[in-house]
């Protein structure tokens, strides 16, 4: 087969494959021309944004307002019209504490336990997630053997559903799981990982890092690859030490990506639920019960579903996330201004 034949074949293939797209464009051409004629060229961005805005409004903004309204109501009825206005009573119940440091003195002790557990989880998860992602990205940015393979390996867990991730690790960590079998074969005793609060929290953090690290590594890797190589070449010619290159060239230029990683990890960390819920069920006791699980239990798993209290807790969580986002914006702005 000649190269000319190949070209014509691929050209034909391309034509066949692009045919539906071409047809779609033809169908859309008329109405879009009409919209542009009626609304003018300035209206076109809004036309293209409209589907996304409608989706966002329907599934994010409207539920946000409904949730806010529910937090001022009580009772167990589901529909807004059947609910009783209670003012700020649900917030009063959440914040009714003898001492905020000791959850056992609070009326909603599990809410505060959830807050403290979430804070602990987020702190360690974010620190180690960013650290490991950075190290991995730095290694994968080098010209090592089978680099593509390792990139795929690190990214693979991101593709798995959180429930699958949690179930895999649960099977590994159970009393008769692979890890305990390995420990026994090495002459150690079995460890009941899900009975010890410390181990349960450790594995919650570990599994979360394992599952998400690939995504953040990818962001940092993109940042590393965007750094012009001539800067490194110049530093090498100057005989600059490796550590100095890292702190003076790599880190400052990687900072925008780092910021994205930190903020995304923080927000995702605060929202942690599915993986840990399947892995530990929030136990032992309430050792790994996070704020989202408290909201879920209060609103959905109890026999009497307290939507008002669950909504109030959601609003508190929303405020925390809002503050984190503002901090991110402030940090980005300061950097851009500076």
């Amino acid at each position: 087969m000649t190269s000319g034949d190949q070209l014509s074949f691929s050209g034909r293939l391309q034509a066949v494959l692009s045919w539906p797209v071409a047809l779609l464009f033809r169908v859309l051409d008329l109405p879009f021309r009409w919209i542009q004629r009626v609304g003018g060229i300035r209206s076109m961005p809004w036309v293209f944004l409209a589907p996304n805005l409608a989706f966002f409004g329907l599934f994010v903004v409207i539920p946000l307002f409904i949730n806010f309204a529910y937090s001022f109501t009580g009772g167990a009825e589901l529909f807004p019209g059947d609910r009783i206005y209670t003012g700020t009573e649900q917030y009063g119940i959440l914040f009714d504490c003898g001492s905020y440091i000791d959850p056992t003195t609070c009326r909603q002790d599990r809410f505060w336990k959830g807050i403290y557990n979430t804070a602990f989880f987020v702190f360690f998860q974010v620190v180690f997630l960013v650290l490991f992602s950075l190290i991995t990205a730095l290694i994968l940015n080098r010209k090592i053997r089978a680099r593509g393979f390792f990139r795929a390996v690190f990214f693979f867990p991101v593709l798995l559903s959180p429930v699958v991730v949690a179930l895999i690790w649960k099977w590994i960590l159970l009393r008769d799981g692979i890890l305990n079998a390995f420990l026994v074969s090495m002459g150690f005793d079995k460890i009941l990982f899900f009975v010890s609060p410390e181990w349960a929290m450790f594995w919650a953090i570990f599994v979360s890092i394992w599952a998400h690290m690939g995504f953040y590594t990818l962001i940092l890797l993109a940042g590393l690859q965007a750094i012009p190589p001539d800067l490194y070449e110049a530093a090498e010619m100057d005989g600059t030490r490796r550590e100095r290159v890292f702190w003076r060239i790599t880190m400052p230029l990687l900072w925008p990506n780092m910021l994205v990683v930190v903020v995304l990890a923080l927000v995702k960390g605060v929202q942690i639920f599915d993986e840990v819920y399947v892995l530990t069920g929030g136990g032992p006791g309430t050792a790994t019960q996070f704020i989202v699980q408290y909201i879920y239990n209060t609103g959905f798993t109890n026999q009497i579903k307290n939507f008002g209290l669950a909504s109030a807790a959601s609003v508190v969580l929303g405020v925390v996330l809002f503050i984190l986002t503002m901090l991110q914006l402030a940090a980005t702005r300061r950097r851009d201004d500076g």
Binding site: R175, L192, F194, V195, A200, T280, G281, G282, G283, P284, G285, T286, A287, T288, Q289, Q293, N297, T301, N302
Partner: peptide, 12 residues
Amino acid sequence: AKELWGSVSGST
């Protein structure tokens, strides 16, 4: 065994 009653939270 604590595994059963102690390893999960709430009313699970």
